[in-house]
């Protein structure tokens, strides 16, 4: 790794001005579980890392039934799944927070980091999309909030401008009849990158699906929001057939590549299997919520 500066701002403003100064030669450090490996591997030739873990807003973790959940961008996974209220209200996010890496990684890795790393295989992003999460971003020109599905623009690339920082992720409070699920397929039982993954949510009302969202990982240049798959379920009963039809749409939407983690054919097939399985679990969870 080349030589770098390490800076530890304590306010968002300070971080923003540092980002303005270093431009693309700096990145914000949260858990470091991706960034440090990438710097070592030469993907980034940085002049500075800006440690976000000493900024209050990046460390917040608040939840209420009224206002929903706010996850500071640097909050590590274990804090999220360690909170029982959050765990029960946001099952899909919980699934991904407990899946990312092993216990050691979960002690450091953050969902904000997972989002900013923008890997196609990111486990947190489909779950966040399923939960209708929004990214809160601050830059020199002020604050903006962007739906998570609009953040990633390519492998390792985001729609954030140079000089902008992700401060937190807001997730609306789930209402009655909501259920979500993230599952991924890996060849081992831990410590792998998803060959494919599916994050889904359903909102049930009077036995019918009022809203549904489906997002996939590892099968496109970015985590993929498959809007039509979720929409296909709206107004319908959560029957095997309807779920199968949505799963088929997810499979059609996937545009994976063949690499060491899987072939195009296998990955597309997994999209169908995982979406179907995830939807079934999400429906079960939604019913438990009733």
């Amino acid at each position: 790794m080349n030589s770098i500066d390490y800076i530890r701002p304590t306010t968002v403003d300070e971080a923003v001005s540092l980002l303005a100064k270093y431009k693309e030669k700096a990145r914000v450090l949260a858990g470091g579980t991706d960034l440090i490996v990438q710097m070592r591997g030469g993907r980034y030739q940085l002049d500075a890392v800006i440690d976000g873990k000493h900024i209050e807003e990046l460390n917040q973790l608040t939840y209420s039934k009224e206002n929903g959940l706010v996850i500071g961008a640097a909050v590590p996974c274990h804090k999220i799944y360690g909170d029982e209220n959050i765990a029960s209200a946001y099952p899909g996010i919980m699934d991904s927070a407990t899946l990312i890496g092993g216990i050691q990684i979960q002690g450091r890795a953050s969902l904000g980091g997972n989002l900013m790393n923008a890997a196609p295989s990111a486990d947190a992003i489909p779950a966040l999309i399923a939960h209708n999460a929004v990214a809160n971003i601050v830059g020199a020109n002020g604050t903006r909030s962007v739906p998570v599905e609009d953040i990633c623009s390519g492998p390792g690339r985001t729609t954030l401008d140079t000089g902008e920082i992700l401060v937190s992720i807001s997730v609306p409070a789930p209402s009655k009849g909501f259920g979500a699920r993230y599952i991924r397929f890996i060849p081992r039982n831990e410590m792998d990158i998803a060959v494919a993954g599916a994050g889904v949510s359903v909102q049930l009302k009077n036995g019918k699906i009022e809203a549904a969202r489906v997002a996939l990982s590892s099968v496109a240049p970015t985590p993929l929001f498959v809007e039509n798959a979720g929409n296909s379920l709206v107004g319908k009963e959560p029957s095997d057939e309807n779920i199968q039809a949505a799963a088929n749409l997810a499979k059609e939407a996937a545009t994976p590549i063949t690499d060491m983690r899987g072939t195009v054919e296998f990955r597309k097939h997994l999209c169908e299997v995982l979406t179907r399985r995830a939807l079934h679990t999400a429906v079960e969870r939604a019913r438990e919520e009733n």
């Binding site: 092993g102 831990e190 410590m191 690499d259």
Partner: peptide, 16 residues
């Protein structure tokens, strides 16, 4: 070799 890491050269973990 596309997978010269313990991430992608998948040796069994205790959970497997």
């Amino acid at each position: 070799m596309n997978n010269p890491t313990f991430l992608d050269y998948r040796m069994p973990t205790s959970l497997d």
